[in-house]
């Protein structure tokens, strides 16, 4: 790894110790670089809080890609056609790849893959709340592609301009691949919307269940988001949570209308002047309940990840044993 080493305890998101103090001259120079829109690279000086917040954001993002495979994997064996099954497999493979791009980027900040993995498997690390909801019907797979990947694209398109080079580059790579995820989801929904009344009912039910959790993907309201101001100032974020949420709503409502679907928000109203939709607030109590481990699937997701990791242990051990036996490990030849 080519990042500067860092006190590992800093990466604990629950760490309540006082923040380390940065050299004011170095901080000023850093902020000037940010203002000049320069990209920050792994070996560059950066404030402690910048490194810490990036590790938090990037690792949560990587974990989300990995855990995000689980609700979709639930439907591989039950996809309604071979075509749908191949698409779903390819999409899930992409999610694994996307997780790895971001883990790779996170490691440049001086945290090891081993530690990132342990934080996920122990339940200490967070991942996107959305994946703690169950995929009950085939319509859910359509909605996950359309809403969940759609929301992720809104988020990632902006993150592709983040000030930290490895994060931005991983986002560019992901955005290139991800558009098919949303389109295949919308296609599933469009087919069901033209189907039997039972299929239409099933689709509307999926919209009703996924709408609010999808809006929560953008994170708490700006008023409740303690890290936002600093992240915006350092251009890790370039739009606030509420701005991105609004962009997603404005994009998605006309698409829903085109399929004859409604979203479960009685407050929703098009403002003909701004072209934007006024909308209700997600249930933030539910958001914090789920993030603290009490969602419908939190335990199941963690158990599945742990099982996958444990079941793969023998592969990692065998690969190492082979490399050791034939003297192939780079750790042996390197100084």
């Amino acid at each position: 790894m080519y990042g500067a080493s860092v006190d590992q305890s800093e990466t604990n998101s629950g760490d309540k110790r006082p923040t380390l103090v940065d050299d004011p001259k170095a901080l000023a120079a850093f902020e000037q670089r940010i203002d000049r829109e320069e990209t920050i690279e792994p070996k560059d000086w950066m404030p402690h809080a910048y490194r810490k917040q990036l590790i938090r954001m990037m690792s949560q993002h990587a974990h989300s890609e990995l855990v995000g495979m689980l609700p979709e994997a639930n439907w591989i064996s039950r996809a309604p056609s071979l075509r749908r099954k191949m698409i779903l497999l390819a999409k899930i493979q992409d999610e694994a790849g996307h997780g790895l791009y971001i883990y790779s980027g996170t490691e440049t900040l001086g945290i090891s893959r081993q530690q990132l993995t342990e934080e996920l498997l122990s339940g200490k690390a967070k991942y996107s709340n959305i994946f703690n909801y169950p995929t009950l019907t085939w319509a859910d797979i359509g909605i996950v592609g359309w809403f969940v990947d759609g929301a992720a694209i809104v988020n990632q398109t902006v993150l592709a301009k983040a000030s930290y080079g490895p994060y931005a580059r991983a986002m560019v790579r992901i955005c290139k691949e991800e558009n098919f995820h949303k389109k295949q989801g919308f296609e599933i929904c469009a087919v069901m919307a033209r189907g039997t009344s039972e299929q239409k009912r099933m689709l509307q039910d999926a919209v009703n269940r996924w709408w609010w959790p999808s809006l929560m993907m953008f994170g708490p309201s700006d008023k409740e988001s303690p890290n936002s101001a600093l992240l915006l100032r350092w251009r890790v974020k370039r739009k606030t949570n509420d701005e991105l949420r609004q962009r997603f709503i404005d994009m998605t409502i006309p698409q829903a209308e085109s399929l004859g679907l409604t979203v479960p928000d009685p407050m929703l109203k098009l403002d003909s002047v701004s072209g934007s939709y006024a909308h209700g607030e997600p249930n933030w109590d539910e958001f914090f309940q789920v993030i603290n481990g009490n969602g419908p699937c939190n335990r199941e997701r963690l158990a599945s990840r742990n099982k996958a990791h444990d079941d793969g242990a023998w592969v990692r051990e065998a690969a190492q044993a082979y490399a050791a036996k034939h003297d192939l490990s780079p750790l042996r030849t390197a100084a």
Binding site: E118, S122, N306, A324
Partner: peptide, 19 residues
């Protein structure tokens, strides 16, 4: 959970080398 992976029985490292 992952403790058995962190152990170094038969000289295994906790994390595969990075490339």
């Amino acid at each position: 959970m992952t403790t058995e992976n962190s152990s170094t029985k038969s000289g295994l490292v906790a994390e595969l080398p990075l490339w």
